[in-house]
Computed example of a mutant assay.
Amino acid sequence: MIQTFSTENFHTLCDTLAAQDRALDLILKTHGYPPMWTRPNTFESLVHIILEQQVSLASALAALNKLRDKIKKITPERLLSLTDEELKACYFSRQKMVYARLLAEAIQNKTFVPKAQEKLSDSAVRTNIVALKGLGNWSADIYLMFVLRRADIFPPGDLAAVNALKQVKKLPKDVDPEKLLSITKRWQPYRSVGTMMLWHHYLETRKKPSAAGEKIKKAISL
Rank of each mutant, 00 (worst) to 15 (best):
118 E>P: 00
212 A>Y: 10
142 I>C: 02
13 L>C: 05
124 A>W: 06
138 W>V: 02
166 K>A: 11
4 T>D: 06
111 T>G: 00
206 R>K: 10
105 E>S: 10
167 Q>W: 09
220 I>T: 00
31 H>N: 08
81 S>E: 12
53 Q>E: 06
29 K>G: 10
157 G>L: 11
172 P>H: 08
184 T>C: 09
40 P>L: 07
154 F>W: 13
9 N>Q: 05
71 I>R: 01
29 K>V: 10
160 A>G: 12
93 S>Q: 00
142 I>R: 03
123 S>D: 15
174 D>K: 15
78 R>E: 11
73 K>R: 15
16 T>Q: 14
18 A>S: 13
216 I>G: 00
21 D>H: 10
48 H>M: 05
75 T>A: 06
205 T>H: 04
200 H>Y: 03
92 F>L: 02
219 A>D: 02
26 L>G: 10
23 A>F: 11
52 E>I: 01
94 R>N: 11
6 S>C: 09
115 K>T: 12
53 Q>V: 02
152 D>P: 05
134 G>M: 02
70 K>D: 02
24 L>E: 09
159 L>Y: 08
62 A>R: 12
155 P>C: 04
89 A>Y: 01
185 K>S: 15
79 L>R: 06
69 D>V: 08
216 I>C: 04
8 E>N: 12
48 H>Q: 05
66 K>T: 10
210 S>P: 04
30 T>H: 09
128 N>V: 00
24 L>H: 10
98 V>P: 02
141 D>Y: 01
222 L>N: 13
101 R>F: 04
26 L>R: 15
49 I>F: 00
117 Q>K: 12
52 E>T: 14
30 T>P: 07
161 A>T: 02
133 K>M: 11
179 K>S: 14
146 F>P: 01
138 W>P: 03
173 K>R: 13
185 K>Q: 15
149 R>I: 01
127 T>N: 13
163 N>W: 08
163 N>Q: 13
103 L>V: 09
76 P>Y: 08
150 R>M: 09
205 T>W: 03
73 K>F: 14
188 Q>K: 15
4 T>L: 06
65 N>C: 06
134 G>F: 06
13 L>W: 02
73 K>A: 14
113 V>P: 07
164 A>R: 06
80 L>P: 03
12 T>Y: 14
2 I>D: 01
54 Q>W: 02
73 K>M: 14
39 R>T: 03
12 T>F: 14
141 D>I: 00
195 T>N: 01
218 K>E: 13
2 I>W: 08
8 E>S: 13
98 V>A: 11
208 K>M: 05
42 T>L: 07
171 L>D: 08
72 K>G: 02
103 L>W: 03
133 K>A: 12
110 K>M: 13
210 S>C: 11
73 K>I: 14
33 Y>K: 04
107 I>C: 13
182 S>Y: 12
69 D>I: 04
188 Q>S: 15
132 L>Y: 06
204 E>Q: 15
50 I>Y: 01
40 P>N: 05
198 L>C: 05
13 L>I: 10
167 Q>P: 05
121 S>V: 08
87 L>Q: 03
127 T>Y: 09
116 A>W: 09
187 W>K: 12
27 I>T: 05
84 D>T: 15
38 T>M: 07
129 I>Q: 06
123 S>P: 09
87 L>I: 05
152 D>S: 02
13 L>K: 04
87 L>Y: 05
168 V>C: 08
220 I>G: 00
195 T>E: 04
99 Y>L: 04
